[in-house]
Design a protein around this nucleic acid. Structure first.
Lengths: 213, 213
DNA sequence: ACCTGAACACCGTTCAAGT
DNA sequence: ACCTGAACACCGTTCAAGT
């Protein structure tokens, strides 16, 4: 507001524009650009221009463009973890909880394809993924593993290695989400009906009772 | 061989270098580059240089870079169709055939990640996919649909919409393949053991007999 | 018909310089 | 500490020109 005064004990001169949190602003602007223009349209120059900042300003906060993309991916995994955990808790676990987790996962991926593409589109180079990224990724995975362990304890599903079953279920939701994002699922019947069908099949796939033959 | 002579009724002067089939050479060189350097490393300039041709020569054969990538994707779908059909036929159909198809699909994707990434990595823009590309894609999908119809006729699996079940199975193999390519599956137990586990779960998922409760 | 070379408008990254 | 502007080595694409 006041364009001149050094108000009290402010450290930064008021007449000079400073981002309070340029780092977060960069991540959010990157997401906006990916969503609007695709991963290929997210350029450092465009981000700088939109933020009113030099196109090299981001090098104060990230090692390079890859590191910025890794931060986007981390945020995506965090969202997946929170959404699936919330779905499980909301239903109070059980088969309803497992179904709700699958719905939440696929819906989140379709609602935030920019995040999802960064995580699973091969855009983050293996060198750029750090320990935080890996922790965020396995945190999201563990929500699913814990859900399956809980179902095992209740005697509702088979006793196979829960991490192996979790990868089976993960592959299913991940495949559905990716096919939807890539446009390989026709609008009719649509991803929603496929997801419902798949949730029924998955429940049977994990079921305990023996089959004839 | 003979560097000078105009041998008989040859149309092209022998002293001038001509690719017999520049179009195919471009596709193959693009694949080599994607495999070696990743999708980002596949540049038109590098392709031209490797082929001893101007970097704009490809515009005689493709509308733009996107069209070249679409051709790569088409070839990938063709390979998937041939590999899954061969697996089904080799086993003479049945549950063994369905299992072999899933193994063939995931193994092909892991063996040719460059093709797979082009098809499912969001690198081909929607505008660039033509009628041939779509035909190749649905041809690969139809192999799976026909296999499920055959299993239904034998009374081995449930009578749901075969296209819906095919998308369920496709999502599972696709998810497994993508997670493996992206490095999200640990070496131990590895993609192979996960695939074997999943094939058992899928068989039960599609099975006929009713379950208690 | 098929290919070229120069030119154009981009891109990520480096680096000396400013405050 | 944080940011800038110029420079460098790239990129896809266009286009007049060559054969």
């Amino acid at each position: 507001m006041a364009p001149s005064g050094t108000r009290g004990r402010r450290k930064k001169p008021a007449h000079r524009y400073h981002h309070g949190d340029l780092r977060n602003a960069l991540v959010e602007e990157a997401l906006r650009l990916i969503r609007a223009e695709g991963v290929g349209g997210m350029t450092l120059r465009a981000i700088g221009e939109r933020l009113g900042v030099s196109r090299t300003a981001l090098y104060r906060h990230f090692a390079d463009k890859q590191a910025l993309l890794a931060a986007v991916g981390q945020e995506g995994f965090r969202m997946l973890r929170l959404a699936t955990q919330e779905a499980w808790d909301r239903e109070g676990g059980g088969f309803a909880g497992l179904a709700a987790m699958q719905v939440a996962y696929v819906n989140l991926a379709i609602a935030y394809p920019a995040h999802y593409r960064v995580i699973f589109g091969g855009v983050v180079a293996p060198e750029a993924v750090g320990a935080e990224f890996e922790a965020e990724a396995s945190g999201a995975f563990d929500v699913l593993v814990q859900a399956l362990v809980s179902l095992q304890k209740e005697g509702l599903i088979r006793g196979d290695d829960p991490r192996l079953m979790a990868r089976f279920v993960w592959a299913r939701v991940h495949g559905t989400a990716m096919l939807a994002i890539d446009g390989y699922l026709p609008d009719d019947p649509g991803a929603g009906r496929l997801n419902q069908h798949a949730i029924g099949r998955i429940r049977r796939a994990l079921s305990l009772s023996p089959l004839p033959e």
